[in-house]
Design a protein around this nucleic acid. Structure first.
Length: 280
DNA sequence: ACGAGGTCCTGCGAGC
DNA sequence: TGCTCGCAGGACCTCG
């Protein structure tokens, strides 16, 4: 669930607790979330390492270690990182049953990865593996290199629905179902339109809508529909400013009382919210 | 090369 | 009240 703004918020929250800290111990409580590495090797690889940076790439968290390896966490639907004060060990007896990974730091703090559905994934990547991983993901929408022209190039070659193209991580990083719905409404573009059918002015509007929606959501610390929490355990606030997502049947904020937000599952089986009145 | 569809998991709300 | 069913913000894999 966490999309770009949510992962950006989590990264900002956990960054000061991890950066320049030494991992005293890492413990994997749910090894099925590890990909390409076993529990013992993963725990050994982290123990004693200095965390040099905490970053976000697309919807994924990246912890950089001083031996150039990276821990990549994909929260997917229900994963979250949360800072917990380690406290006296005895008092943590009532352990969270959904905890997947504990990273204990020399500060005494613990950063926990928790994931109810465990659809999330954790990778341990050496530099060549990270280079391949990074190269397989599209451009970051909040970087200067992401221009309307770049979006036009991304959409131009795709005959699939524009909403599906926006959510394809190989084409563009970080946009998931919530922000695809919101950006398409903001740009007044019908989500089912073939991506390559958008005119230049529509691409321009969609570019501004994608960038603007993501940036505003980051300022609001993300959207909490259900599970998402920030790195400090708080809900986000952007759910209060959604125009269409999960608002089927309510009046369109742009059309006023005349038109109501519709819901369809016709695109990729995912919930698509749109206004039949103003999105063309 | 690209796109469609299944799969991984658990919890929750709607409906009976 | 208690059960079953369908759905949930993602990404990877296989197949055609």
């Amino acid at each position: 669930v966490p999309e770009l703004p949510e992962v950006e918020t989590i990264a900002a929250d956990v960054r000061p607790h991890l950066t320049a800290r030494v991992v005293v111990a890492a413990r994997v409580l749910r090894p099925d979330v590890l990909r390409g590495v076993g529990r013992a090797r993963f725990e050994r690889a982290l123990a004693g390492r200095l965390v040099t940076a905490v970053r976000r790439r697309a919807k994924h968290l990246v912890l950089e270690l001083d031996d150039e390896h990276r821990v990549v966490i994909q929260p997917r639907m229900t994963g979250s990182l949360i800072v917990r004060d380690a406290g006296p060990p005895r008092r943590t007896a009532a352990r969270d049953p959904y905890d997947v990974l504990h990273i204990d730091l020399d500060s005494g703090a613990r950063v926990a990865y928790r994931d109810v559905r465990r659809l999330g994934a954790i990778f341990l990547l050496d530099p060549p593996a990270w280079a391949r991983y990074d190269a397989a993901i599209g451009p970051e929408p909040l970087e200067a290199a992401f221009t309307a022209e770049r979006l036009a190039a991304i959409l131009g070659r795709a005959g699939l629905a524009v909403k599906k193209a926006l959510m394809d991580q190989r084409r563009l990083a970080g946009v998931g179902n919530i922000y695809a719905n919101e950006a398409l409404w903001l740009a007044a573009v019908d989500p089912s339109r073939p991506a390559s059918s958008l005119r230049a002015d529509e691409v321009e509007r969609l570019h501004r809508a994608v960038v603007g929606t993501l940036a505003r959501s980051i300022r609001g610390r993300g959207t909490t529909v259900r599970d998402y929490r920030t790195g400090t355990g708080q809900p986000g606030t952007f759910q209060g400013r959604l125009a269409v997502y999960q608002r089927a049947g309510r009046p369109c904020p742009r059309c006023g009382g005349g038109k109501r937000i519709a819901l369809t599952h016709a695109i990729d089986g995912r919930a698509t919210y749109f206004c039949p009145g103003c999105q063309h």
